[in-house]
């Protein structure tokens, strides 16, 4: 059966036809062309397909598209506005928190959510929140540095 579902993706309403067995990951990437979303395991281990689904981080390879009709989804593309990088994204670049870059969208998105919830995280809190995402290049140290240096902006935002 084909369902017409409506999602708010990065602030825009998108209506798309999906089959019962289509995964949110594939619908976002292949039908809505949200290419910041990556995948490396397709079974919930690598975390590269992480999206914000109604304000919560979830791995979109384990979600049916039809399940989330009416939901709000944010991907890394939804963080910056008008082509200007966010302070967090700039911090990732400045601290070298990426090598091949394949995991970077997921780490940026999850770090963003982490800082929204906790704008003053300890190393341990960062590690706990980000351990669901894999980086083989080994940029974990730089990611922690980037998050800490950008945390200032989230604290300001909160005030």
């Amino acid at each position: 059966m084909v369902h017409k579902i409506t999602l708010t993706v990065n602030g825009y309403k998108r209506t798309v036809e999906v089959k019962d067995n289509e995964l949110l990951l594939d619908v976002l990437r292949d039908k809505l062309k949200i290419k910041g979303l990556k995948a490396a395991c397709w079974r919930g281990e690598c975390g590269l397909c992480t999206v914000l689904l109604n304000g919560k981080l979830v791995k979109s390879c384990l979600v049916l598209a039809v399940e989330v009709d009416g939901s709000e989804i944010v991907t890394v593309e939804g963080l910056s506005r008008d082509g200007e990088l966010t302070e967090l994204q700039k911090a990732f670049i400045e601290h070298g928190a990426l090598q091949c870059g394949f995991c970077t969208p997921a780490f940026v998105l999850a770090s963003h959510q982490l800082l929204l919830e906790n704008p003053n995280p300890t190393d341990e809190e960062i590690k706990e929140k980000l351990s669901g995402i894999l980086c083989r290049c080994g940029t974990y140290y730089e990611i922690i540095e980037a998050i800490k240096s950008a945390s200032n902006f989230y604290r300001k935002k909160q005030r």
């Binding site: 395991c41 281990e45 590690k127 083989r136 080994g138 990611i143």
Partner: peptide, 14 residues
Amino acid sequence: PNFTNYYLIRIKDI
């Protein structure tokens, strides 16, 4: 043949 039973270092392990 997967990342559950073939473990790669994660950020919590550094």
